[in-house]
Amino acid sequence: MDTYDAYRAITDVTEDQRWAFGAGFDDPLSGVDTTIPGGVSADDLGAYCEMLGDDALLMSHRLQQWVGHAPELEEEAALANIALDLLGQARFLLARAGTVDGSGRTEDDYAFQRGPAQFRHVRLVEIVDSDFGIAMARLLVFSTWRLAVLDRLRASRDPVLAAIADKGVNEMTYHRDYAAQWVIRLGDGTEFSHHRVQAGLVQVAPFVGELFTDSDVETRLAAAGVGVRPSETRAEFDAALDAVLSAATLTCPAWSASGGGTRIAGHRDTLTRLLAELQSVARAHPGAAW
């Protein structure tokens, strides 16, 4: 890998065959200049990377739970691809967090050693997929939102975030397209599927407002030209969802209001169970290398 153009190496998946964001034991960002841009708080940048990283990590976890249970074999491959992409984004972002917040933690330290009170994700990613209808509704909302955010993040003054966002945009475009096509098929499929995906949207609705609520960290980082205020992506999100739901003959539910709290961690049932599954083996072997 050309370490002098590591940013390009991050984005240019198809040219560089050896690139796999850390399939070796090296830190995924090894060789990359990790200096924090001027005028930016290290704590803020670290928190932001955790936020974006946790969203991807937990969303990937939910998709991984579909392995072996997908409605058709081809969907197994598709869902695994999406899960892998998001896992890759999470690894980058969590590794970046460790290089900026002064803790020197690794991606695994963040993933496996933090407790429920320390995660910084949006509650949307905690939803349990009780069926494929809600899975696609949630994936559509998540992908559309995250695509809009990463699209703007490509202009970040932090070159690492910009590079991660650049690669992420290609991936999120594919994910959104996949989810949109499924929502359309289910919405305009059979009567049964129409009801299921409509019900899925209704279950997802209460968690949408939080996506567009700017946290203090995001507000400060956006002002510094490093981060993105998610509220700015609302119009784009609404337009995309309207188009998809209309083609799907579905009714757009009333999304919850923004402006309340956002990314509040806690000992919620869904989260503690998710983390138990994610962390139990790692925690059973403190200090072990894998």
């Binding site: 850390g22 399939a23 034991f25 991984q64 392995v67 072996g68 197994e76 491959a77 695994a80 691809n81 899960a83 892998l84 896992l87 890759g88 999470a90 690894r91 969590l94 991606e107 695994d108 993933a111 496996f112 599954e277 994610l278 139990s280 083996v281 790692a282 072997h285 072990a288 894998w290």
Partner: peptide, 16 residues
């Protein structure tokens, strides 16, 4: 349940 993110990615690719 994989105990590292790298192993998780490898295993996911394998099962896929």
């Amino acid at each position: 349940r994989a105990p590292s993110l790298r192993r998780k990615a490898i295993l996911l690719a394998k099962v896929q």
